[in-house]
Design a protein around this nucleic acid. Structure first.
Lengths: 232, 232
DNA sequence: CGGACTTTTGAAGTAATTCAAGGGGAGTGG
DNA sequence: CCACTCCCCTTGAATTACTTCAAAAGTCCG
């Protein structure tokens, strides 16, 4: 892979967009490359923080597990996105697990290196502020949804969000581009796989979605929007 | 208020700690002062973002309301803490409301001024990253609690957290230093005031807490910890 | 002391979980 | 190529944690 190609990739990440080429070169020089096979963890919850990563190719899932072993899915990561924020914010252990769903390729920087780069280039720190602010707002909205909405609404918003983020137009509707089980949806919406299954079955009967083994296709996005906003 | 006194105040805020005096003077020179009376809003949800604030004196509550008018409490703010992040992260409207619970006094900076100061002093941007990272982690933990824990556990963790953040030792135990209604606790834990009332009554019977009109005193913090971690 | 707000508690109702059992699809190995 | 096995999904039935509805009893403040 050529230097210029790598620069172009970095330039499109949320972390480094709008940064001058000279600075990008510096980042590239300091970057370590990391490959993770599908099913392997890039970061394990509780691990000491040593580096921050940017996804180049692949898809990963960020989750958090409590002491009883119950897990929730925080978010999915795709190309251009940051994994392992704690190296930026000064945490000492990773608060969650980052698992590769597909074979993935990432650039990374050790905490110390990144902290130093961030101190020297405030544009980078400001990018981090923007990205973290966006994540913070997203999670606050999910918290509000968990507090005030019923399961069906939450599943509807979640499916819609995933269709937007990772949707793929097909003849039958918008297909979510990665394998998504009932259990996964349950861990995103704070319910059980049984309830998700019943809900999807009901929607399927009405023609709102088509779904199968780890696969969800949204046929009528507006119907889902109506459900999500409690217009029942 | 003297210049040096103001500097000492700024120095202790989460936003400006560890920053050289010269830079602090610059911030002070650019700061606007704002007073908000108890019961008044500093920021209203949906308002265009124009400034960011730091609490000097007082206590405020950050909440978010959905389209049905249901409200959740995101957090409480005390001296040294930031109100109105969106001016830092580049949002265009405020995602929540910040209401003064007591007469409060704040320093503020317009978005443009702060963005400029942050660009010139990466130490500030790095402080913001740290603070945002901490908030992000807190909200993720609350999201996990909302997803995986029952109401009683959530009320227990919330009361414990508040006792830690704003606790005041008294003869009867740790008293939460500000007025806290059943409704407030309900909006923090995603339940109803009825359930909170029943829960507190049950705890009171066991001697774990004492509580009254908008007042909560934790008598047995370890018992609450046991409940919070599902050791029943 | 009136009146507004907060809290309490019972009773009924319900959304969602838990328990339980079975079915189906995809991959594997004989 | 078929049978076996592992996942994942589905669906009923019973249970329950929590909400909703309703009414009354404090408590604080002007």
């Amino acid at each position: 892979m050529g230097h210029q190609v790598d620069l172009d990739i970095l330039k499109r990440t949320e972390l480094l967009q709008g940064v001058p080429d000279a600075v990008l070169s510096e980042f590239l020089a300091a970057a370590l490359r990391r490959r993770v096979a599908a099913g392997e963890a890039l970061i394990n919850q509780g691990d000491p923080v040593d580096a921050v990563f940017v996804v180049i190719v692949g898809r990963l899932r960020v989750s958090q597990t409590n002491s009883e072993g119950q897990q929730i899915i925080i978010r999915y990561l795709g190309p251009g996105q940051i994994a392992g924020y704690s190296a930026l914010t000064g945490g000492d252990v990773h608060p969650g697990t980052v698992l590769a769903l597909e074979d993935s390729h990432l650039f990374g920087w050790s905490s110390a290196v990144f902290q130093e780069l961030m101190a020297r280039h405030s544009a980078i720190a400001i990018n981090v502020v923007k990205v973290l602010g966006a994540r913070y707002n997203e999670v606050k909205i999910r918290l509000r949804q968990m507090s005030t909405e019923r399961v069906e609404q939450r599943i509807a918003s979640t499916v819609l969000r995933l269709a937007e983020q990772a949707g793929h137009r097909t003849a039958r509707g918008i297909e979510i581009a990665f394998p998504l089980s009932r259990q996964d949806l349950a861990e995103m919406t704070g319910t059980t796989l049984h309830t998700v299954s019943r809900t999807l079955s009901a929607w399927e009967e009405k023609g709102i979605v088509t779904s199968g083994r780890r696969r969800v296709v949204v046929a009528q996005a507006d119907a889902l929007k109506a459900i999500a906003s409690a217009e029942k």
